Simulated assay, not measured.
Amino acid sequence: MIDHADNVFDLNAVLHPATVFEHPRDVVADPALSLSEKRAILASWASDAAAVTSNPALRELAGARRIVTIDEVLEALSMLDHKPSGPPGGKPMRQKSTSRVALAA
């Protein structure tokens, strides 16, 4: 798909991802693609241009072997996002209760 020696990218993958990939997870798993290329391909797949007229939650692209839901595309996009190692919001800064600190003074 990409010839890194010549810095050539197959635009068909971005414009018509279903002709190159069977499922959005295949885009995520492709080791030859950069993170930006994967995001561009999945964004193209998720675009309203691919939506089925009578059911916009479905994405059907020209040359596709099957219909893909928007949820499948968004799930693949979320797989590219960095996941925090700790709990949401990070570690709390306050270690002691403010009421106990006030009583100690």
Rank of each mutant, 00 (worst) to 15 (best):
I2M: 11
V8M: 02
E72L: 04
P24A: 02
R59W: 07
L80V: 09
R25D: 13
S85F: 04
R94W: 12
S44W: 07
N7A: 09
P17C: 14
E72T: 01
R66V: 12
D48S: 14
G86H: 13
R94K: 15
G63P: 03
K38Y: 06
P92M: 06
F9P: 01
N55F: 11
S34H: 02
A32W: 07
V20C: 04
M1V: 15
M93W: 11
D6P: 00
I70N: 00
R66P: 01
S36R: 13
P17M: 01
V28F: 12
D26N: 12
E72K: 07
K91I: 11
A40Q: 12
S54F: 07
S34V: 10
M1D: 03
A32M: 09
G89Q: 02
S97W: 09
L11W: 06
S34P: 00
L58I: 04
H16C: 08
L42D: 07
R25S: 12
L74S: 00
M1C: 07
W45Y: 07
V52E: 14
D26F: 02
S47P: 05
N12F: 10
L42W: 03
K91L: 08
V8F: 03
P24E: 06
A64N: 06
P87D: 04
V8T: 13
L103N: 08
H23G: 01
T69A: 02
S34K: 10
L80W: 02
D3M: 04
A5R: 14
R100P: 05
A51K: 03
P87W: 02
G63F: 05
P31N: 10
S99N: 10
H23E: 13
P87A: 11
P84A: 06
A105E: 12
Q95R: 09
A50D: 04
L61W: 08
A64D: 03
D10S: 04
L33W: 02
T98V: 14
A32T: 13
A32N: 13
H23I: 12
L35V: 06
S54A: 10
I67G: 03
R39L: 05
S85A: 11
H4E: 12
D10Q: 08
D30Y: 02
T53W: 07
V52H: 08
D26P: 08
H23Y: 12
G86A: 14
L103S: 10
D26C: 05
